[in-house]
Simulated scan of single mutants.
Amino acid sequence: MLDHTGRYRVRYEDMFRALGHYLDSQRFTRIAIVETPEGFLVKGYVAGDSREGGLHLAPQTYLFTNEDLDILLEQAYGRRRQSRPQH
């Protein structure tokens, strides 16, 4: 996967960490990820509270385009910059 300039490769570790943060925040479970030329296809279930008071799993499929992934990466880098100790 290339960065937003199209010249440099993005480390998969960084990309999966950013994507994983998003999926965790959206309460995804039972996840399958497939890399495509357009980005990553993510299939899984989103956990939500049911009317009966239990847990409900709704199937979801998303295509994260390379542009979407760039945004997730920039947000992740921003979170890391904020969490660095100040000297």
Rank of each mutant, 00 (worst) to 15 (best):
Met1Thr: 06
Met1Gln: 08
Asp3Gln: 03
His4Gly: 06
Thr5Ala: 06
Gly6Asn: 06
Gly6Glu: 04
Arg7Leu: 12
Arg7Cys: 08
Arg7Ser: 12
Tyr8Phe: 05
Tyr8Gly: 10
Tyr8Glu: 12
Arg9His: 09
Arg9Lys: 14
Val10Glu: 05
Val10Gly: 07
Glu13Tyr: 15
Glu13Ile: 15
Glu13Ser: 08
Met15Asp: 00
Phe16Pro: 15
Leu19Tyr: 00
Leu19Asp: 00
Leu19Phe: 01
Gly20Ser: 01
Gly20Leu: 01
His21Phe: 10
His21Pro: 15
Tyr22Ala: 04
Leu23Ile: 04
Ser25Tyr: 10
Gln26Trp: 02
Gln26Ile: 09
Gln26Pro: 00
Arg27Gly: 15
Arg27Met: 13
Phe28Ile: 00
Thr29Ala: 05
Ile31Phe: 01
Ile31Lys: 01
Ile31Gln: 06
Ala32Trp: 13
Ala32Leu: 08
Ile33Pro: 04
Ile33Thr: 10
Ile33Val: 12
Ile33Lys: 12
Ile33Met: 03
Glu35Leu: 04
Thr36His: 11
Phe40Gly: 04
Phe40Gln: 09
Leu41Pro: 12
Val42His: 01
Gly44Val: 01
Tyr45Lys: 12
Val46Met: 05
Val46Gly: 00
Val46Gln: 03
Ala47His: 07
Gly48His: 09
Gly48Gln: 10
Gly48Phe: 11
Asp49Gly: 07
Asp49Cys: 12
Arg51Val: 15
Glu52Leu: 10
Glu52Asp: 11
Leu55Ala: 02
Leu55Glu: 09
His56Cys: 11
His56Lys: 04
His56Phe: 06
Leu57Asn: 02
Leu57Tyr: 10
Pro59Cys: 03
Gln60Ala: 11
Thr61Gln: 11
Leu63Phe: 13
Leu63Trp: 11
Phe64His: 07
Phe64Gly: 03
Asn66Trp: 15
Asn66Glu: 15
Glu67Lys: 05
Glu67Thr: 03
Glu67Arg: 10
Asp70Ala: 03
Ile71Thr: 02
Ile71Lys: 05
Ile71Trp: 02
Tyr77Leu: 13
Tyr77Lys: 12
Tyr77Phe: 11
Gly78Tyr: 12
Arg80Phe: 13
Arg80Gly: 14
Arg81Glu: 07
Arg81Cys: 08
Gln82Arg: 11
Gln82Glu: 01
Ser83Phe: 03
Ser83Val: 12
Ser83Glu: 08
Gln86Arg: 04
Gln86Trp: 06
Gln86Met: 04
Gln86His: 11
